[in-house]
């Protein structure tokens, strides 16, 4: 069980994380410990139903965000769309038809319970805080209250840092977790002569068909192990590309 000092440390850490290197500079693992879960992730809504991962513990939480990004469904997209909290204490007992593509993958990742809190501001959802742990079971009432507090502190940090953030644009190292995905989308848009939005759809579809994460496939695109060029022999058949 987490101690009180843990939550204080996380809140203090968040408050001082006015970091030029990213939107949130605090330690995600410490946050997970304080909230008595195995992992945490924060994604920000960037429009068109897309969320950009900005902070996460490594491993299952990050993979879960990637899966939701690939598949476009899950507790995160749902919390973002409804501005409501999504508590799923046991992923093996979710009602039929809910997140059909995501669930088996999430369970295979070893995620037992997911608790997703919207980051709310001015009546809008600006992002999500997703907690996950391997052991199924409902969150304690106190843990839910603490999670809302962390969600509030995260919202404040995101909004405060966003104002200063454009200054970091000149840096070569990207602050985005999924920088490679956007680089790959740029390359695919040239290869397949499609818009960036269509390029991203193709990337996600490819990842889904091959049972891989978007980030992995994007890495292969950028290192030129996978391309989406229109086949030379079938120029004009614009929907065909080589795997």
């Amino acid at each position: 069980m987490a101690s009180r000092g843990d939550l204080a440390a996380v809140l203090g850490d968040l408050r001082s994380s006015a970091s030029a290197a990213g939107l949130i500079g605090a330690d995600a693992a410490a946050c997970a410990r304080a909230l008595a879960v195995d992992g945490v992730a924060v994604s920000v809504v960037v429009g068109d139903g897309l969320c950009e991962l900005v902070w996460s513990t490594p491993g299952a939480s990050r993979h879960l965000e990637d899966l939701q990004f690939t598949l476009g469904e899950g507790p995160g997209p749902e919390a973002a769309a409804t501005c409501g909290v999504v508590l799923e204490p046991d992923l093996t007992r979710v009602r039929d038809g809910r997140w059909p593509a995501l669930l088996p993958e999430a369970v295979a990742l070893g995620v037992g319970a997911v608790f997703c809190f919207p980051l709310l501001l001015g009546g809008a959802c600006i992002g999500t805080l997703t907690l996950q742990r391997a052991a199924p079971g409902p969150p304690a009432d106190a843990a839910v209250a603490d999670a809302w507090m962390v969600a509030g502190a995260l919202t404040a940090v995101l909004v405060e840092n966003a104002g200063r953030w454009p200054a970091s644009v000149e840096e070569k190292e990207s602050v985005l977790y999924r920088a490679v995905v956007h680089q790959a989308a740029g390359m695919i848009s040239v290869q397949a002569r499609v818009t960036l939005a269509q390029a991203l759809v193709r990337l996600r579809a490819y990842a889904f068909r091959h049972g891989r994460s978007v980030a992995e496939v994007a890495e292969d695109v950028v290192t030129r192990r996978v391309h989406f060029r229109i086949d030379q022999d079938e120029r004009g058949a614009s929907d065909r590309w080589r795997d």
Binding site: L23, V44, L121, V159, A162, W165, V169, V180, H182, A184
Partner: peptide, 20 residues
């Protein structure tokens, strides 16, 4: 404020796309 946050992220995303 939401728009500013989205703009901050979008500005970074667009740089990555242009790199690609």
């Amino acid at each position: 404020e939401q728009a500013q946050l989205q703009a901050a992220l979008s500005s970074r995303i667009v740089i990555e796309q242009a790199k690609g």
